[in-house]
Amino acid sequence: AVSDRLIGRKGVVMEAISPQNSALVKVDGETWRATSGTVLDVGEEVSVKAIEGVKLVVEKLE
């Protein structure tokens, strides 16, 4: 799938994300809905860990 190429890519949080709420991230110039197990604020850099349906699963870039 096209989205599989995004695993391992870096992105930027466009809307705050919490474990209860998905929000938008920008990866390679494209906007995607994403979820995370932690709270992520706007502007934080993230890494794509997986794809669940049409959502990216991201975590904060260390």
Score class of each variant (00 low, 15 high):
residue 47 S to W: 15
residue 29 G to P: 02
residue 38 T to M: 10
residue 60 K to D: 01
residue 5 R to H: 09
residue 36 S to V: 04
residue 16 A to L: 14
residue 24 L to N: 05
residue 19 P to T: 11
residue 15 E to T: 10
residue 2 V to C: 12
residue 28 D to P: 01
residue 35 T to Q: 07
residue 7 I to L: 09
residue 11 G to M: 02
residue 1 A to R: 10
residue 19 P to F: 11
residue 6 L to K: 01
residue 49 K to V: 15
residue 57 V to N: 03
residue 50 A to M: 06
residue 60 K to T: 06
residue 16 A to W: 15
residue 2 V to M: 12
residue 17 I to M: 14
residue 24 L to I: 09
residue 40 L to T: 02
residue 40 L to K: 00
residue 31 T to Y: 15
residue 19 P to S: 11
residue 35 T to G: 05
residue 5 R to S: 09
residue 41 D to L: 15
residue 19 P to C: 13
residue 60 K to H: 06
residue 58 V to Y: 01
residue 48 V to Y: 02
residue 10 K to M: 08
residue 42 V to M: 06
residue 14 M to Y: 06
residue 13 V to P: 00
residue 18 S to A: 08
residue 27 V to Q: 02
residue 15 E to P: 04
residue 32 W to S: 00
residue 47 S to T: 15
residue 55 K to Q: 13
residue 41 D to H: 15
residue 34 A to R: 00
residue 4 D to E: 12
residue 42 V to F: 05
residue 55 K to D: 08
residue 24 L to T: 07
residue 41 D to K: 15
residue 59 E to D: 07
residue 48 V to R: 01
residue 5 R to W: 10
residue 33 R to L: 15
residue 27 V to D: 00
residue 34 A to M: 03
residue 41 D to R: 15
residue 37 G to C: 14
residue 33 R to H: 12
residue 3 S to M: 14
residue 16 A to E: 05
residue 56 L to K: 01
residue 45 E to T: 11
residue 14 M to S: 04
residue 26 K to V: 11
residue 25 V to H: 01
residue 36 S to P: 02
residue 55 K to H: 15
residue 26 K to S: 10
residue 17 I to H: 13
residue 18 S to G: 13
residue 4 D to P: 09
residue 43 G to N: 05
residue 34 A to V: 08
residue 46 V to G: 01
residue 14 M to A: 05
residue 60 K to I: 06
residue 24 L to V: 08
residue 41 D to F: 15
residue 56 L to H: 02
residue 46 V to A: 01
residue 44 E to P: 02
residue 40 L to Q: 02
residue 55 K to M: 15
residue 3 S to C: 11
residue 37 G to W: 13
residue 43 G to A: 03
residue 24 L to K: 06
residue 24 L to M: 09
residue 22 S to D: 15
residue 38 T to P: 04
residue 49 K to F: 07
residue 57 V to G: 01
residue 59 E to H: 05
